[in-house]
Simulated assay, not measured.
Amino acid sequence: MIQEVIKDDVTLFWDIDDIIRETRYKKTFLEANLLCDPRIKRFERKPKPRSKRIWLAEPTKETIKNIIMNEWN
């Protein structure tokens, strides 16, 4: 599986900077409107309590897309 990921150049995880880059929203907006959503939080991982947060890339991307397309006016 690891060799497949390397070969296909697939992003497995996003950090907050990746989400900012992909959505073009500021960190404060993301924290207040998207990252606090339980559907997004379920993909969040932290190795230790005070360490950097990461999110599974594909399901987080799809969930953000669904929230924006279906719930925002």
Rank of each mutant, 00 (worst) to 15 (best):
D37S: 04
D9K: 14
D37F: 06
I19F: 01
P49Y: 10
D8C: 08
V5G: 07
K41R: 14
T63Q: 12
E44P: 07
R50T: 12
I40F: 12
T60W: 06
A57W: 01
L30P: 10
M1S: 15
R50E: 13
K7T: 13
A57L: 03
L35K: 05
R42D: 02
L56D: 07
L34M: 11
R53W: 02
L12T: 12
D15M: 04
L35P: 06
K61L: 08
A57H: 05
L56H: 01
D15N: 13
N70P: 00
K61W: 10
M69L: 08
W72P: 04
A32D: 15
K61Y: 13
W55F: 10
K27L: 13
A57Y: 01
I19P: 02
E71Y: 12
Q3I: 07
T11V: 15
F29K: 12
M69G: 00
R21V: 00
D9E: 14
Y25M: 14
I6W: 10
E58Q: 05
D17T: 03
E22D: 03
I20Q: 10
R21E: 03
E4L: 14
I19Q: 00
L56M: 08
P38I: 05
R24L: 05
W72R: 05
I67L: 14
F43L: 05
L12F: 04
I40S: 12
L35R: 05
D18T: 09
F13G: 00
L34V: 09
P59V: 03
I19T: 01
D9T: 09
D17V: 00
E62G: 02
I40K: 06
D15W: 00
E22S: 00
E71H: 11
E58G: 01
K61F: 12
K65H: 09
I67S: 06
P49Q: 11
I16P: 01
W55I: 07
I2Q: 14
T60C: 02
M1T: 12
T63K: 09
K7V: 08
L56E: 11
M69K: 04
R45F: 15
K48Y: 14
E58N: 03
L56C: 05
I19E: 01
K41V: 11
R42F: 02
K27V: 13
I20N: 06
T28C: 09
E62F: 02
N70G: 03
N70W: 01
D18H: 11
E22V: 00
K27H: 13
K27S: 13
D15G: 10
V5M: 12
Y25S: 11
I54Q: 08
T23M: 00
K46Q: 14
P38A: 02
S51W: 13
I16W: 02
I40C: 10
I20A: 03
Q3F: 08
I2R: 11
L35Y: 08
L30G: 09
I2D: 15
I16M: 10
W72C: 07
V5E: 13
A32T: 11
V10N: 07
L34T: 07
N70M: 06
R21C: 03
R50N: 15
R50Y: 13
Q3M: 11
E71N: 09
R50V: 06
E22T: 00
I2A: 14
A57D: 05
D17E: 15
I64C: 01
P49V: 12
A57S: 13
T60G: 04
K52S: 02
T60R: 03
E62S: 00
W72D: 05
K26E: 15
K65C: 09
L30V: 09
V10E: 14
P49G: 09
T23H: 01
D37K: 07
I20E: 12
W14Q: 06
